[in-house]
Amino acid sequence: MEELKRFLIFSFCSEPETLGNLQWLSCYLTTIKHSELYKSVFVVLLLLAITAPVSLMFGFGGAMAARSRIWVINGFGRLYIAIVRGVPDIAFFMFFVIALDQALEWLRHHTLCPDWSDAIWQGNDFVVCPEAKMPLSAASQWVHNSYSFALAILTFSIVFGAFAANVLFGAMRAVPGAQIETADAYGMTRRQTFWRIIVPQMWVYALPGLSNLWMILIKATPLLFLLGIEDIVYWARELGGSKTAKFTSYPHGDLRMWYFLALLVFYLAFTRISEIVLDRLMARLTFGQAITGGDSQRAGKT
């Protein structure tokens, strides 16, 4: 049986039916199927690790665009922020991934299969030549996985980038006018003022908003499921459901509550750790800046 294969070998696991509780559990939790759950934890962490900096970049770009004096760029920045913030995440996820996927295939279709005579839209069906498929149907599983993972990162980054753009845009405007005027008075150009004064000083205003976003991003990772990636929540439900002896060596009743409880603990612990790290980051980034300086002086810590 499939479950007899495992990624961690305990010698006593060969006869699961005869085991005591603790041993049974250690065998049960090390089946290949459970390794999928652990892998999905890794996938979630990887998603976060890539999405956070990428959406910060998108956000920075969006905020810069929204500040631009060139109206095309300015309009683009504001439109990006407005649209993505206004549309529900789930709707955007569903729409954007399909739209992007089809746009890519449409482009590839026109470049790779110029002789194809059939219409792409056949009724409600979207049909492109086999060479234009993304990824190719013959491609191996990991290519399919990586493709959908990359789409997921892009989608998450666009959504969270828009929120980050709004936070950063506000933070840039929150830098005191006197600081900027002083830069003007000392002959700095707009660009110098932006990079040397506004950007270093905006973090103190941006960080509360950004850490909030980070928390929301962590909590949004189960949306991966919508993009066809089997995430932690998917596996918790899958593995927790009751199993009869017919299909597994580890029959059990409905354990979903426990699986979800474990998820709860995982997410809570993760957000708590994030909070601690972000607090430290805040203290470091804002060291010496007027508002924190004032606070620490009031507290008599200087």
Binding site: A178, T182, A183, A185, Y186, I197
Partner: peptide, 17 residues
């Protein structure tokens, strides 16, 4: 002109970072 006329402000305006 600005680099040749250096300003000292009422509220000092030192760059806080």
């Amino acid at each position: 002109i600005r680099t040749n006329l250096s300003m000292v402000f009422q509220q000092f305006n030192l760059w806080s970072h």
